[in-house]
Design a protein around this nucleic acid. Structure first.
Length: 115
RNA sequence: GCGGAUGGCUGGAUGGCCGCUUGGGUGCAAACCCGAGAGGAAAGUCCGGACUCUAUGAAGCGGCGGUGCCGGGUAACGCCCGGCCGGGGAAACCCGAGGGAAAGCGCCACAGAAAUCAAACUACCCCGCUUGCGGGGGAAAGGUGAAACGGUGGGGUAAGAGCCCACCGCGGCCUUGGUAACAAGGACGGCACGGCAAGCCCCACCGAGAGCAAUGCCGAAUAGGGGGUUCGCAUGGGCGCGCUUCGGCCUGAACCCCGGGUAGGCAGCUAGACCCUGUUGGCAACAGCAGGGCCAGAGGAAUGGUCAUCGCGUCUUCGGACGUACAAAAUCCGGCUUACAGGCCAUCCGCAUUU
């Protein structure tokens, strides 16, 4: 599905290279970031990871949707161009944490990862 | 009303703001408008099919795997319905891998004298010698065990034994009822035939394999081959368990054509053994007919995020607080199994009560 102003990651290789980049943890999620090379196309790219550790299929879906919603509201304004971001869900916390707090967490995390 | 049995349904509601997938419409386009958008189990992936591909189709014999009371339903099933038999329950009702042990092999722990083919530990009876042994009778009593060579009563006897009799059980036979499993009755036999087939086995019936990441089409790169038509189908080699018989096909030759098929894209992909209502047949599962309906199609994967109000449950200092099941389509159907907060309905059984 598309998110306005963002490009969704689809390749396993993109996720793996983002995992080798910088990372910032918050109570609700972990943020990973990789700055792409100059020869690659421009744009902010985003991916989501909710493994079996998050819970069953229903819990993983809910965590992924909240992360996607928070990314949709925050990243087009606060994300940096030519960067890949990956949001990793946590068990229980991602689904239960207050939504406004989760948004503030992401804005803070983006600032910290580029500091 | 209380306790219980069985079958089925449901599994939050409304509104605001911001989004996603998809069908249709308008528009040059941007976009806007109108619809549709998780489950009873979508789950486990345990059975059965549809569909697709593979150079194999029929018959016989064999092998391997599965199923296993009887009848019916179904596209099919290991599923469902009705019945039979055995067991449990006071009853409604529930449970059962429930073919064959006189085709054969094997096993039956411990205990016990003895575990299937013969026998005899204690005890019993008779005789002999004699105070404990020898010979014989018999298998009724005791004890062991999951199971002990029919059971109970009577006659009989030295003591006993189907040795004889009655009833019950068992066995094959006959009659009747039933499509059948089986049941009821009759005369006869005279006890002979223990259990395990979820150890091997025998019998009957069924069965190719791989799977939508199947498969087809469009197509960057790399390597060199790939495709079509016709002829032949003679020999050899081979082809979906083995052998035999019959048949088919591939490998062959000639001619013609040119891209190749991985990343990616498109198709397959949702109208179906479909759903609802009525009616007919049937005890039922189910089937027929008539009318109406369209009901998810994603592809790192939409079906949502957030705020508020209400409902329900628990607690409460009466302000409120907390909780609100299990579990999310992935080619599609029919089942089975397992998970599930709470709520609702129907039928039946027992007890209590009542005008």
């Amino acid at each position: 599905m598309k998110l306005p102003g963002l490009i969704t990651l689809t390749k396993r290789a993109d996720f793996l290279s983002a995992a080798r980049g910088k990372r910032v943890s918050t109570p609700g999620f972990t943020l990973q970031m990789r700055r792409r090379g100059l020869d690659e196309p421009a744009g902010i790219r985003i991916g989501f990871t909710c493994s079996k550790k998050v819970g069953n299929a229903v819990a993983r879906n809910r965590a992924k949707r909240r992360l996607r919603e928070v990314a949709r509201l925050v990243l087009p304004d606060h994300g940096h161009d030519t960067c890949d971001y990956v949001l990793i869900g946590r068990r229980d916390e991602t689904a239960q944490r207050n939504f406004e707090t989760l948004k503030a967490d992401l804005i803070d995390a983006v600032h910290r990862i580029h500091a």
